[in-house]
Design a protein around this nucleic acid. Structure first.
Lengths: 219, 219
DNA sequence: AAATTTATTTAGATTCATCTAAATATTTTT
DNA sequence: AAAAATATTTAGATGAATCTAAATAAATTT
């Protein structure tokens, strides 16, 4: 049985590796779990002793097959709970990440299974992230960074790249929500900001910073 | 902010005190939280320093008003989660206690509130235990130990006194479930066992041991 | 009331996850 | 390739929750 902390590290390694597929550095991991590099080294050794990661001192760490399996189940639980909180308990998408961080560590195979069934086996969570099934498999959708769309093109918002509270609440303010249609009206060359129209309705300026955080399915 | 362990102790004191309204002894508490008396003494001092309990060395411990408030909220969360697991996720009443032990420590005021709403403000959990509301108040129903009913009398099962897995599964086997009608047909004098009829249908022998674990509302 | 038994507390050690500071390895700059 | 900067590991300490063993207090028995 793993401690909550061990699970946190495994999932952090998984997530970093998802973005940057290579050995995960001690520092990157320390940043992700908000602790010191020294603590990370300690924990990595523990996980290596349990054969959940492969570790080469000074080089970095990567998950073993077993480590991947555990991390995937954590991601599954996290995303199912987020879906539950939004769909059933009327939470905002900006509120659920933190609570799901706790819920994902509740130990019960049956709980996840029944939750999945209760939600009718959702494939994506409120942020558009894919939900692994019981076997750890998940669907990848066609997706493209909004910043890559050309002027004149349109896309449907299918995923956001950050769960940060203030980022999501900013999107709320702009009335940008999952599934909305975004049409590119203009693009400024000097700062890559873009003028967009949302759901054929209102028009807003989007900074590059934001446009690289949104995934769309091109129309 | 309290640790999960501190919360466990507070709730344990609350529950022991509920059954035996007096100072809670170190040993009783040690037994309840399955640890040593020495550990309990340590923890009690910590809780006393936080003014959540009043502690007299060698005499015992009792909750302060603040301690009662926290314990009551834990009971509330525990019972709401149990209700959720049975009503929404199709768990058996014998399976939910352990999972709820974990869920009750998830920190989020809004989570409890929304869960309560989602369940439509239930007053009792699957074992018939009253669910405190957000203010900590709960309803007491008229209830009587089944063992106190006379031959010829009937009652409706409204509460069970234990959450133990094997006890509840034994009731399942006897087809005794919450809300069923129990009619006393005979009582043996030498061991206080009773012959009962359930829902005007099948007939079984109940040992005293079991009859003192069931609360009924007399018909 | 003294002796014995039982309950409780104290003392000292252990494990987990963390920290800071110092040492060492690696990478980058010059 | 040497120097400087950065990243990583080691060493030693800390706080939380636990343990065992020993000391002490309270309750019970004789």
């Amino acid at each position: 049985m793993l401690t909550k902390t061990e699970e946190r590290y495994l999932k952090a390694i998984y997530k970093i590796n998802e973005l940057w597929p290579s050995l995960v550095s001690t520092n990157a991991l320390a940043h992700k779990v908000r602790t010191s590099a020294a603590s990370v080294t300690d924990m990595i050794k523990k996980l290596a002793a349990k054969e959940l990661v492969f570790y080469e001192p000074y080089k970095g760490v990567r998950l073993s097959a077993q480590g991947v399996a555990i991390a995937t189940q954590l991601v599954r639980k996290h995303r199912l709970w987020e879906t539950f909180l939004v769909q059933k308990l009327d939470f905002e998408w900006s509120e659920v990440h933190e609570i799901a961080q706790h819920l994902e560590h509740i130990p019960s195979e049956k709980l996840v299974q029944q939750l999945d069934r209760f939600l009718d086996y959702p494939k994506f969570d409120p942020h558009g992230d894919p939900i692994p099934n019981a076997e750890g498999k998940f669907t990848l959708r066609e997706q493209l960074l909004l910043s890559r769309l050309e002027v004149g093109q349109s896309g449907t918002l299918v995923r956001v790249k950050s769960q940060q509270n203030d980022f999501l609440r900013h999107l709320d303010k702009l009335q940008i929500s999952m599934g909305c249609t975004i049409h590119i009206l203009e693009r400024e060359n000097y700062d890559q900001s873009m003028l967009i129209q949302i759901d054929n309705h209102h028009t807003v300026m989007l900074s590059k910073q934001i446009s690289i955080m949104l995934f769309v399915r091109p129309a």
